[in-house]
Design a protein around this nucleic acid. Structure first.
Length: 303
RNA sequence: GGUGCCAUAGCUCAGUUGGUAGAGCAAUGGACUGAAAAUCCAUGUGUCCCUGGUUCAAAUCCAGGUGGCACCA
């Protein structure tokens, strides 16, 4: 098995895109995005989609391919991305996967259990029931539907409980019965490259990048999707803060500061997730040569 | 120059009739199975501006000083 997926991961703003493009050019290959927000074509500036030149110089997949109005989830991503990866391997090797959405990356590397997709009717029904009856009632409902999951569930996290209840409600089976937690072995090798740098430097980069986004017209971009603010796809850093400004509940300056702060928080959360993954080999953003050396030490593409 | 108000955690501020201090935000750590840039959880020692006084005991009362704000000249 020589097919290799090079996974470039790291916190937001660290410079993953630049490294991925260099790697893709070096190996004459494509980039598959693992970014849950760059998927949406209406969101370009605020999600830091690479500039047009970069997108033209290297083929990118899963960038700007969906609308904010489309329903999308990790499972769909897994199905589509794995199919594409297998197809691309017929003509090229290695491939580069890059992005900051932790769950999306893990889904490609390890798979995710088959859980039936909840219909909008059931979802709305359960959400409405929750809004009328509250968290405690939701916990009790889960306890009666799936006591096993109740034992391990994060009982304050309504989103998790809601999903478990939805699945039970729809299928008549317990949520636990779908949670096999089986790791899928992929028909390709995976090399994980983590990019990180000193926290202060990273934060400074993030702050500057937000200023640059504002200069590039983020306010206008956010205003154009403002009417659809309740969509899940717009519960996104860079947009939700500007919606508050449009509402008149804060100044533009305050909104921009909040975008910076929330981006930093996001970066921290990403690092928390990645920290437990011992397969990741970490590098600084300038260490392109070292990265290529490391990859070469793991696999030889010219045999 | 005079008078009044204020000074407590990185920031904004609570702090009852004196018993050596605690919220929100920030920051940091953690969780994570179809909303994941989402959602949830945990972590609070700081010359209570300085000096002196009263008191068994002062962030708290008194005097002076320093800095800020407001008003009057």
């Amino acid at each position: 098995m020589n097919n290799t997926l090079i996974v470039v991961l790291g916190p937001t703003g660290v410079g993953k895109s630049a490294i991925s493009i260099h790697l893709a050019q070096y190996y004459s290959t494509d980039i598959i995005s693992a970014d849950s927000r760059q998927l949406f074509r209406e969101l370009a500036i605020g999600t830091a989609v690479p500039p047009t030149e970069d997108l033209q110089s290297v083929p990118h997949h899963f960038i700007q391919t969906r609308s904010i109005h489309d329903y999308y989830n990790v499972s769909e991503y897994e199905t589509e991305a794995i199919a594409l990866i297998n197809q691309l391997f017929l003509t090229r090797n290695p491939l580069v996967l890059t992005g900051g959405s932790m769950l999306y990356i893990d889904t490609i590397c390890k798979g995710i259990d088959d859980i039936p997709t909840v219909t909008p009717e059931i979802r709305n029904e359960v959400i409405q029931w929750y809004q009328e009856n509250g968290l405690e009632a939701l916990q009790q409902r889960l306890l009666s539907l799936d006591p096993e999951y109740y034992q391990i569930a994060d009982l304050n996290n309504a989103k998790r409980l809601l999903h478990a209840v939805e699945v039970c409600q729809m299928t008549g089976k317990t949520f636990t019965s779908f949670r096999k937690n089986t790791i899928r072995t992929r028909p390709f090798r995976i090399i994980k490259i983590g990019i990180n740098q000193q926290r202060e430097v990273l934060y400074e980069r993030i702050n500057k990048r937000v200023d640059a986004m504002i200069e590039s017209g983020l306010v206008e971009e956010a205003r154009s999707v403002y009417p659809y603010r309740d969509l899940n796809s717009l519960n996104t850093v860079g947009y939700k803060e500007l919606f508050a400004y449009f509402d008149g509940s804060c100044t533009l300056e305050e909104a921009v500061d909040l975008i910076k702060r929330n981006s930093r928080k996001y970066a921290r959360k990403q690092l928390t997730w990645f920290r437990r993954d011992t397969e990741i080999q970490w590098f600084e953003p300038e260490q392109l040569e070292e990265i290529i050396t490391y990859i070469s030490s793991k696999v030889n593409f010219h045999q």
